[in-house]
Structures are given as structure tokens and as C-alpha cells.
């Protein structure tokens, strides 16, 4: 119980206690690792406050009603069934609240869509049930499979770790192209705030700029058959130098 409480408090004050992977008893988002996800998380905090007050208002009214207007306490019902000013108020206030939600929301939408000048491209291709990562500029292509339970090493996360993660440099604007060769998959990394469907015959686009090194996890996010839960995404974010080295090491290897 104290543990739950502690976790709860950490969540509320957003202590940097959480890594970039899902955590037990977590109540909220994974730690953001891109400017976009920071914005999204702030926006969600804001939504949460608004929602909290609306819900609190409805619950409070309900409790007052339950307390005050029970048959025992209030045997004679009133007969009113109209109050035009009141109805106008409870129509306009939600409209105003929604405008306050919509404006920042749409800003984020446009921000997500507007790709800053990209410094490199990776192409992710979904298959039943693994991912292919492609670095078109460097002609690197390889497949990424989930590590089976039997092969798990102690540091691996069950159902999240993969044999060859996607490797990208830190602090770099990366354009992500997503497609598929069979059914629809979805490339998603929660702490980056990205999720793009990989649709056969279509090339979808999104972008990311990760500001912290580390390994990040996501899972395929569109039902794609019996292996849907078993094609995780793991992204290793390394320093720019390490990335150059990694490119050199892999350039001429057949993946």
C-alpha cells in the first residue's frame, strides 16, 4: 500500500524515477524523451486538470443531491422543469472549455505534422511478425525479432527486448518512413510520442528527435494476427559519435 502511495506521489511530482520503459504500478506516461512527447505530456496534464474539475463538479452535485433530496429528507418534490438562463450557462461554459482545449491541441497537431529539416531517414517495414529497419542513406537493412522466452538474458525485458534494436543518434531530427508488406502494423514508441500505421501500398511519415541516450521500448500497435503481441520495438539511442561508428561497422555487413 505504501508502495502504491509512493508511486502515486512520484507520478504526481514527475520525479525522474522512471526509466524509458513501462513500470509496475505506474499510473501515467513513460518518461518523455522527445520535445514532442514533453509537449504532449504537458498538454495531457492540462487536460487532466480540466477533466478533474468537470468530473468533480458532476460528482459533487450528485452527492449533494443524494444527500439533500432523498425521499426521507425531502418528501415533497419541487415542480419546476425549466430555467432558461441556467440552460444557456451549461451550454456556453462547455463550449468555452472546449475552445480552451482545442487551441493548444491543434497547435500540437500542426507541430507534429511539420517535420523540421530532417538530418537522416530510417524506414521501418512491418511484417508478420517482425520489423525490418532500413537506413536508405547508408544502405543498411536488417530484421529485428523479439527475443523468445527461452533465450532471455537477465538484463532483457520479456516481450520487449529484441535481437537487433533500431539504432539512432541522439539530438538528431530523424524522419521515419513506415510501411508494410502484408497486413497493417503500427510503429509506436510511447516515450517518443510517435505512432504511425504501417500500411501496405502506402508510405507514412513521422519524425522524432530524441534528447536522451538510452534504450526505449514500444510494441506493434495495430492488430496484425496471432503474433501481434510479439513484435516489440526497441530503439537504442546513442551519441552521434557512437552512431557514426555503428554505421561504419554495419555498412558492409549483410544483415
Amino acid at each position: 500500500m505504501t508502495r502504491i502511495l509512493l508511486m502515486f506521489l512520484c507520478q504526481i511530482f514527475a520525479l525522474p524515477l522512471f526509466a524509458n520503459q513501462p513500470t509496475e504500478w505506474a499510473l501515467y506516461f513513460q518518461e518523455p524523451a522527445t520535445p514532442l512527447m514533453v509537449r504532449l505530456r504537458e498538454f495531457h496534464d492540462y487536460l487532466l486538470v480540466i477533466s478533474f474539475f468537470i468530473a468533480a463538479f458532476v460528482f459533487l452535485m450528485m452527492f449533494i443531491i443524494i444527500y439533500k433530496f432523498r425521499e426521507k429528507k425531502h418528501p415533497v418534490p419541487a415542480t419546476f422543469s425549466h430555467n432558461t438562463p441556467l440552460e444557456i450557462v451549461w451550454t456556453t461554459i462547455p463550449v468555452i472549455i472546449l475552445i480552451f482545449i482545442a487551441v493548444p491541441s491543434f497547435k500540437i497537431t500542426y507541430m507534429m505534422d511539420h517535420i523540421p529539416k530532417s538530418e537522416m531517414t530510417v524506414k521501418v517495414i512491418g511484417h508478420q511478425w517482425y520489423w525490418t529497419y532500413e537506413y536508405p542513406e547508408n544502405k543498411i537493412v536488417y530484421d529485428s525479432y523479439m527475443i523468445k522466452d527461452a533465450d532471455l538474458k537477465p538484463q532483457d525485458l520479456r516481450l520487449l527486448s529484441v535481437d537487433r534494436p533500431l539504432v539512432v543518434p541522439v539530438d538528431t531530427v530523424i524522419e521515419v518512413l513506415a510501411t508494410s508488406t502484408d497486413v497493417i502494423h503500427s510503429f509506436a514508441v510511447p516515450s517518443f510520442g510517435i505512432k504511425r500505421d504501417c500500411i501496405p501500398g502506402k508510405l507514412n511519415q513521422t519524425w522524432m528527435k530524441v534528447f536522451k541516450e538510452g534504450t526505449y521500448y514500444g510494441q506493434c500497435s495495430e492488430l496484425c494476427g496471432s503474433g501481434h503481441g510479439f513484435m516489440p520495438i526497441s530503439v537504442k539511442v546513442v551519441s552521434k559519435e557512437d552512431f557514426k561508428k555503428w554505421i561504419e561497422d554495419n555498412k558492409n555487413k549483410k544483415g
Binding site: 520503459q21 513501462p22 513500470t23 509496475e24 504500478w25 505506474a26 499510473l27 501515467y28 506516461f29 513513460q30 525485458l157 520479456r158 516481450l159 520487449l160 509506436a188 510511447p190 516515450s191 521500448y217 514500444g218 510494441q219 506493434c220 500497435s221 492488430l223 501481434h228 503481441g229 510479439f230
Partner: peptide, 22 residues
């Protein structure tokens, strides 16, 4: 809602340990 925030996808028959308690 909590595991959803934390990133658990729907329509999966098995999930990482982190989502177990919820």
C-alpha cells in the same frame, strides 16, 4: 487507463511484466 498511459497496447494475449499488477 493506467496501463494504457504506460503504453500497454490492446489486443495482445500476453504482456510485459510491468503491466502485471494492474
Amino acid at each position: 487507463h493506467f496501463v494504457g498511459y504506460n503504453g500497454m497496447p490492446r489486443r495482445i494475449p500476453d504482456y510485459p511484466q510491468a503491466f502485471a499488477p494492474m
